[in-house]
Computed example of a mutant assay.
Amino acid sequence: MKKVIILFAITIILTACKNDNDTKVNKKLNVVTTTTMITDLVKNIGGDSINVQGLMGAGVDPHLYKASEGDVSKLVNSDVIFYNGLHLEGKLVEVFEKMKGADKTPIALANELNKNRLIGSDYFASNYDPHVWFNINFFEQFVEKVTLVLCEKDPKNTETFRANEKRYLAELENLKEEVQDAVNGLDPEKRILVTAHDAFNYFGKAYDFNVVGLQGLSTATEAGVQDVQKLANFIIDKKVKSIFIESSVPRRTIEALQEAVKSKGHDVKIGGTLYSDALGTEGTQEGTYIGMYRYNIKTIISALM
């Protein structure tokens, strides 16, 4: 990380004049994003009027992500930077702090949320669970903030940004109805979601699911033997039908849990792979926020029914 920060400081000096000149000419905004969810959001609002570069790709775990030299260059040469915040991108925090001293202020979208509505967590320096995008209402607030910033930075395209915002918010409202209808078809006693780590607490709170993660809130923590055995007993006691792998977390943790249940004379199925900290491959249904949410809810309901 020290090497990256040194490189960052050098790059600031070398590119300062270039950045000043670029902002004065009529070019597309260069927007850099961190997680795939935010990248998809910004593309929906900006469309062809902006250039978007996402640092993280499909299946990338933001908890463990470290900035490369190429990432630092993208950040320095950007006009706008959007990230989740709440220490989700923990290993990028130091880089963002350095940027604040270089007349760049990366925008943490989670700062727009009412802290009284967030779920507390001792695992993060923010003291909050950062997986806020699983509350669609919160994600809509992200949309509104992104639109506001893009309009301020590029007023000539305000009409386009506002039209895209209106369309996308309508799609998110439809998504909320779809998800609620699907959840209503699952008996309340079956609404137990067991995953590799606690990424789905906001989903659980919104749709009345009991969410249990083997690794806790951060994938940086490892599940021990006692954790596995304790959760295995919970699955047996609650007669949980299926447990779930996450695309950005190694499957071995859930497979170990499944074996622990079997060793006690019971059976639990792996209900499928859920997308938690990252979207699926670009160009697929799961490669968009809305498509990911639809895929997840269909997978969860089908496996627990």
Rank of each mutant, 00 (worst) to 15 (best):
D79V: 10
V80D: 03
I81V: 13
I81T: 13
F82L: 11
Y83P: 01
N84K: 00
G85W: 03
G85M: 09
L86V: 04
L88T: 00
L88C: 01
G90L: 04
L92C: 07
L92R: 07
E94Y: 12
V95E: 01
V95D: 09
V95Q: 10
F96D: 04
F96K: 07
M99S: 07
K100Q: 14
G101F: 05
G101E: 10
G101P: 05
A102G: 08
D103S: 13
D103E: 10
K104N: 09
I107L: 13
I107K: 05
I107N: 11
I107A: 04
A108Q: 11
L109Q: 08
A110N: 15
A110S: 15
L113N: 10
L113I: 09
L113F: 08
N114E: 15
N116M: 08
R117M: 11
R117D: 10
R117Q: 13
I119P: 00
S121N: 04
Y123F: 11
Y123G: 01
A125S: 13
S126G: 08
N127Y: 10
W133S: 05
F134Q: 07
F134V: 06
I136E: 03
I136M: 08
I136Y: 05
N137W: 06
N137V: 06
F138S: 07
F138R: 05
F139I: 03
F139C: 01
E140F: 00
Q141V: 06
Q141E: 13
Q141N: 13
V143A: 12
E144R: 15
E144I: 11
E144Q: 14
E144C: 00
V146H: 12
T147N: 02
V149T: 12
K153G: 06
K153W: 02
D154M: 07
P155I: 15
P155C: 08
P155V: 11
K156R: 13
N157T: 05
N157D: 11
T158E: 11
T160G: 06
T160M: 05
R162Y: 02
R162M: 09
A163G: 09
A163W: 03
E165W: 00
E165N: 08
K166P: 02
R167N: 14
R167L: 09
L169E: 09
L169I: 07
L172S: 02
L172P: 05
N174V: 09
L175E: 02
K176V: 06
E177H: 13
E177R: 15
E178A: 05
Q180R: 14
Q180G: 10
Q180I: 13
Q180T: 15
D181V: 07
D181K: 14
